[in-house]
Amino acid sequence: MSVTDTSAMSWREWLLSERPQSRSQARLGRAYMTWRRFTANQLAVVGLFIILALVFVAIFAGLLAPYSPVVGDLRGSRLLPPDWAHWMGTDDQGRDILSRVIYGSRLTLYVIVLVALIAAPIGLVVGTVAGYAGGWTDAVLMRITDIFLAFPKLILALAFVAALGPGIENAIIAIAITSWPPYARIARAETLMVRNSDYIKAVEIMGASPGRIILRHIMPMCISSLIVRVTLDMAGIIIIAAGLGFLGLGAQPPLPEWGAMIASGRRFILDQWWVAAMPGMAILIVSLGFNLLGDGLRDALDPRSSGQ
C-alpha cells in the first residue's frame, strides 16, 4: 500500500489485509468482516436502525416529547383521538400518549439493558463452569437450571415480584432471575463442543488454570451465540415487562411504562382504541427490531462461517 493513497478504497484494503501489521489492525479487520456479513442482510440493518432509533428517542426524550408524560389536562383533553395537537391522542388522565410512549422508551431500554446485563453473565458463568468442570459440579448446576426452566417464565416472575413487592426494579430482578437458565444451557452446550478440542488441550498442557481456560479460551467461543440469543430474547423480555406492568406488578403509575399503559387503556379499548393501541404498536416495533437484529447477528457472528 502506498503512503499517498488515502482514499476509502485503501481503508478497505487495509481492513481486509491478509497480513495485518498490528493487533488493532487484526481486530478491526475482523470486526469489519463481521460488519460486512451483517450489512449483507438488509432486514438486519432495518432492525439495527429501529434499535438505534429507540436509543436515540430514549436519550432525547426530554427534547422530543411535546408534553409532560405524567401531568395531563384533566379538563380539556381527556381521551382525545389522534389529531395534529396530539399525534397519538390522549389518555383518560388527559396526558399526551406520544409523550408517554417517548418517555416509556427509557423504561423499556432500562429494563432490557439491565436484564441482559444481569442474566447473560449469570448464564454464561453457570454454563461454562458446568460444561468445563463436568461431574458433580455439572450435575448440581444443571439441576438448579432445570428447576428454573421447569416454571413458566411469567408465572415465576410473578411469584418473585409478589414476594419482592411491585416496582420496576423488582420486575427487572424477577425477569433476570427467570431468564438466565436458557443462556446457561446454550453456554454449556457450546462449552461441551469446544472442551475436548485440541486448542483447549493445547492451553491445558501449557499449564493454564481452569479459571483462565474458561475465561479466556472457552467464553469467547460462547459469547457470539449468547449475544444472538439475548438479542432474540429482548422481544420476549419487553413483553414480560409489559405483562408485569399490565398486571400492575411492574412499573407503578404514573410511570409511562408501555405495558402499564396498555393495561390502563383496556377499559376504553372499544371506544378509545388508541389508548391501548399506541403503546402496543411501540412494543411491536421494538420487538420486531430486536428480532431482525438478532437474526442478522446470528449470520454475522456465526463462528462456523468466520472461524474454522
Binding site: 478440542s197 485440541d198 486448542y199 488441550k201 493445547a202 492451553v203 479460551h217 469467547p220 467461543m221 463462528p303 468466520s306 472461524g307 474454522q308
Partner: peptide
Amino acid sequence: VFQDPYGSLHPR
C-alpha cells in the same frame, strides 16, 4: 504438537 493443525489453534 497436535495432529490436526486446523483444530489445535484457537479460531478466535
